[in-house]
Write a protein that binds this DNA or RNA. Structure first.
Lengths: 110, 110
DNA sequence: GTTTCATATATAAGATTCTTATATGTAAGG
DNA sequence: CCTTACATATAAGAATCTTATATATGAAAC
């Protein structure tokens, strides 16, 4: 059955998905999520940073401090093997949730 | 853009969808949601009742006390016109969220 | 030069929501 | 009687989200 966390877990799927591609820091992560969804999905940074902490504690991502060319320090997150492994079941869970909701509205319509 | 409430609003869509069909009381609502999604979606009653309160305060549903044939009192909820009107945009929002998440994982895959 | 915007991370306070556990009570079946 | 199904409700604590704020650099504009 669909985990209860799923109701809140939009961000996790989004973050893991985007990190599949390349390691990124928080600010850029937020921007990419917004861009790649045409603005449909948007996370405030105040919500995003604590999320990244949580995901790091769960070992899905790992952050390292880096200094960019322009001298700014930033925390660069990359997917861990565990995070990679988490991704496909998460995707499946979301798909299942969506199908369940569709079924509900359809059954009700009928 | 997708409202932030959407991340939590699974229940709302589910409840409104099921109530489209017929007025129902909480306990039965929970059962139908579970049945109609083949167990994929399940809400505990302790989570459901406060939700129904909230939805009633928002005027999406209206509850009336009824006494069933077997003498049990129960609160029967039915969709209000406002709730009906809320339903299709909510569905659209969810579809958009899903498309956005799919886009994210696909873009990342490419 | 100084104001402003984009970059970048972080935390606090308050509100909301979720989970787990518990309370209450009826009815039916064994 | 005892258990299962029905039916609603609340409390306590955990988790989460929102809004606001703090800090600091680099670049561009004026």
């Amino acid at each position: 059955m669909i985990g209860s966390g799923i109701k809140r877990g939009t961000a996790e799927l989004a973050v893991l998905s985007v990190l599949q591609d390349a390691p990124l820091h928080g600010y850029e992560l937020a921007r990419r999520i917004e861009q790649q969804t045409n603005g449909a999905l948007r996370f405030t940074l105040a919500a995003l940073y604590p999320m990244l902490y949580r995901m790091e504690q769960q070992r899905w991502i790992r952050g390292t401090w880096e200094t960019s060319a322009n001298g700014r320090r930033r925390r660069c997150y990359r997917l861990t093997p565990a995070g990679k492994k988490k991704l496909s079941p998460l995707q499946r869970e979301w798909a299942e949730l969506f199908r369940a909701l569709q079924r509900l509205t359809k059954v009700a319509h009928a």
